[in-house]
Design a binder for these strands. Structure first.
Lengths: 364, 364
DNA sequence: ACCAACTGTGAATCTCAGG
DNA sequence: CCCTGAGATTCACAGTTGG
């Protein structure tokens, strides 16, 4: 398949091969979200021992060895260019790394036209200590979340993130444990199958924040398939790319065993922006408000009257509920739904109450 | 003074001028530590308002405007080259930034031959929320700590950092509040004097970790003088460079008012590496241990006998307390002081106890 | 059965003075 | 400059063993 562009996406599959070559075979503007956990270029020298003389099993794989920063940059640029090509206009991309490589990736993203939305800190609850006492414990990794371009209208499930964080905004620092215990895939000798398997909790946060049900998620360095397994669980479509056949085999088995959440379990707090849009005029059309009704702000400082076309009128001034709120208070903008109040059954209430009532009626 | 290299450092002063030009006037290899809080290149588009329509007073100063990433890179490279020149061989440098600029700075550091030691996350306890609800709350900034080169024997007050953190290693994520309240310098209108004044707690952590008393600390973007004030308080020497005369005036006043901690208050937990070196043989010479005494490891698995020259003997094997500990346990190395135990008054105790006793006697 | 003690391990750029 | 050898250095969990 190398080189040949397919017209139908290989959905819910794991492709074995080099990620740059394999991405070249995929059509442009077809992917909603990419999560990438590329080699970190750790540049480890000799062996490292713990104070008890036991040996640290560091990352010593061939795939993490680069001759120089320039080599690493060339490799990174090549896969990021392909990644950007296959992303839809409003898509986003995540990369994860440490201080060894994350600065290189950040600069490439910025130079290639991606638009950085956040850098996210994965604070590890149980990091490996610094055994020589010569640096601060390296207790975090960094993720960069970027839109394909500055004008991408990307997805961010703000309310769902807020709900996950006890109803305050989700911050850029996430505290999550390493992938250990039964979640960690083992080989036949009982040793870790992959040196850098990421925890599912991290991927769940990522996909819950930035993708929708049925979105297409691609992981160009899919390894043991954590991204793919979580995508499947969350009802997203996925494409994995992995060079090492052993990892592909293990990931296929893992993903197949993953249970898909039923649609009712995938419902999240909707963002207000996604609620059906109700023009103020339709409240008038439908008779929830009648022409000539007087509206006032909360403190009864300003007032206006409803016109037949759904505009408000005050003397010579005329405009939408938003525009009139802004004009009468000399504000640059105004949310008319929460600014204006109307007397219903003797009680002054926000217009938003009526809007919500109509939304309820319109839903099945 | 521009261009003319001075032979004596302008210690405990704040120089008004461009940092690149001013650093060119300083001698090479003369500074122990640089802390830099450069312009962030924020690329703010238009004004930002809170949900209540009040205006967010963002960073919008001339010094934070760069035409492009390339401009920002050129500027950053120029000052980092001068910074590296004036640093001593074993010196370290700190820079702080956000995702707008920190990746550029990290790449430049790596490409110029600096050696990254840690990236540190300043987690803000009270960050500004994201008013639009379109991203995660940007609740942190990133610091990079780098040595002048990979072979620098840099200073890191490991034990002091550990002591500050309830006796566990200090991690790479620091939780500290923003600079607010009385600490925040105000202008004559009661408004904040500088848009990005850093908290003293952050600088104190930085200087306590990576400098010694009397070290020379330079801040090329000294602003309101936070670095300089903390350096003075902690008994370090300082040099500030700042382009804006108003900030220089305010910083001079602030620094002059800063109280210097007395030497007794500047004592920190010393690293063992800095303790006076006691050869094991001197314990034998001074009669704290006698020839022929039997030593054993903690679990009484191996033993050895003290020889007249301070070596240990076991059958044909002979060597220092460290070498014998390593040999008898097949370990690559061993700290004999904590490995071997000796019976004193019926109690088995670490050799280290005797060493500490001798150190006590030798001190005034 | 239950608890205490022990063992293993994680993306790691992990020493330095003195001759 | 290089080489030698003293000697400094670990946190949070998970899993297993032993009492």
């Amino acid at each position: 398949m190398s080189g040949a562009v397919v017209t139908t996406l290989p959905l819910d599959q794991i492709l074995c091969g080099d990620c740059i070559e394999t991405m070249r075979g995929l059509p442009s503007a077809s992917i909603d979200c990419i999560f990438a956990d590329p080699p970190y270029n750790l540049q480890l020298q000799g062996e490292l021992r713990r104070p008890d003389e036991s040996l640290v099993d560091g990352v010593n794989d061939e795939w993490d060895k680069f001759k120089s920063f320039a080599d690493y940059d060339n490799f990174s640029k090549a896969w990021l260019i392909e990644a950007r090509r296959i992303l839809k206009k409003d898509a986003t991309l995540w990369v994860i790394g440490s201080y060894h490589n994350i600065f290189r990736l950040g600069v490439l993203l910025q130079d290639l036209g991606f638009w950085v939305l956040n850098d996210i800190i994965w604070r590890k609850s149980n990091p490996m200590p610094n055994f020589r006492g010569r640096r601060f414990t390296n207790a975090h990794e960094t993720l960069i979340w970027a839109a394909r371009s500055a004008d991408s209208r990307y997805r961010f499930n703000y309310q769902a993130m807020k709900a996950l964080n006890e109803d305050v905004q989700m911050r850029s620092d996430w505290y999550l444990p390493l992938c250990t215990g039964h979640e960690r895939l083992k080989n036949k000798h009982g040793l870790k199958l992959h040196p850098t398997q990421k925890p599912e909790s991290l991927l769940q946060r990522v996909l819950m924040a930035s993708t929708d049900v049925s979105d297409i998620v691609l992981d160009p360095f899919s390894g043991t398939g954590t991204t793919l397994a979580v995508a499947r669980k969350l009802g997203r479509r996925f494409i994995g790319i992995e060079r090492h056949p052993d990892y592909v085999v293990a990931a296929k088995e893992r993903v197949a065993a993953e249970e898909v959440l039923t649609p009712d379990k995938l419902v999240i707090t909707p963002d207000k922006r996604e609620a059906p849009r109700i023009p103020f005029g339709s409240l008038v059309e439908r008779g929830l408000l009648s022409v000539g009704t007087v509206l006032m702000d909360k403190r009864k400082k300003v007032k206006a009257t409803i016109a037949l076309d759904g505009n408000l009128v005050n003397g010579q001034q005329r405009g939408s509920i938003h525009k009139m709120g802004a004009m009468l208070t000399n504000a640059p903008s105004c949310n008319g739904w929460t600014f204006w109040h109307v007397k219903i059954d003797g009680q002054w209430q926000e217009l938003d109450v009526l809007r919500n009532k109509l939304i309820q009626e319109l839903e099945p």
